[in-house]
């Protein structure tokens, strides 16, 4: 037994979240991450089965909803808040330092790519052991 509306919502949240995650603006990435976790939390609940009464002992009204995915999702919500707060602090700092919240390509990696030729020359000098040179 499954609810199509929720599955559809999960799909849209994942798509929108992933799309924002691919962007270059740090603030969009943070927002994308938040959307993605909403989708993940819904997915957890959905996998737990159908809606039910709140999982409280003694509560009235039909079978109880599964408490385990709820507990997992609750942890996830709080952790997401933590990472959102941290990423926002990063975005703020990035703005403070560079007046931009763009995620640039890693400077060091770009350097590796462009300095290949130089490294090759160094390697050649380092490797050849000419102990017999006379």
């Amino acid at each position: 037994m499954i609810v199509l509306a929720l599955a559809l919502t999960v799909a849209v949240l994942y798509a929108a979240g992933t799309y924002l995650l691919f962007q270059r603006n740090l603030s969009r990435i943070v927002i994308g991450l938040a959307l993605l976790t909403h989708g993940a939390n819904l997915l957890l609940l959905l996998a737990g089965g159908r809606a039910g009464r709140p999982p409280i002992v003694g509560a009235e009204g039909g079978p109880a909803a599964d408490p385990v995915p709820q507990a997992l999702a609750l942890t996830a919500i709080v952790i997401t808040f933590g990472s959102t707060a941290f990423l926002l602090a990063l975005a703020y700092r990035s703005w403070l330092l560079t007046r931009s919240d763009e995620v640039e390509d890693d400077v060091e990696d770009v350097r590796i790519a462009t300095m290949t030729a130089l490294r090759e020359r160094e390697a050649e000098e380092e490797i050849v052991v000419d102990e017999e040179a006379s």
Partner: peptide, 17 residues
């Protein structure tokens, strides 16, 4: 790629349940 991700997640939700 994002739409594909969404479709996969939705299909996974249906399939898992």
């Amino acid at each position: 790629l994002s739409i594909l991700t969404g479709v996969t997640a939705g299909a996974f939700a249906l399939w898992a349940a």
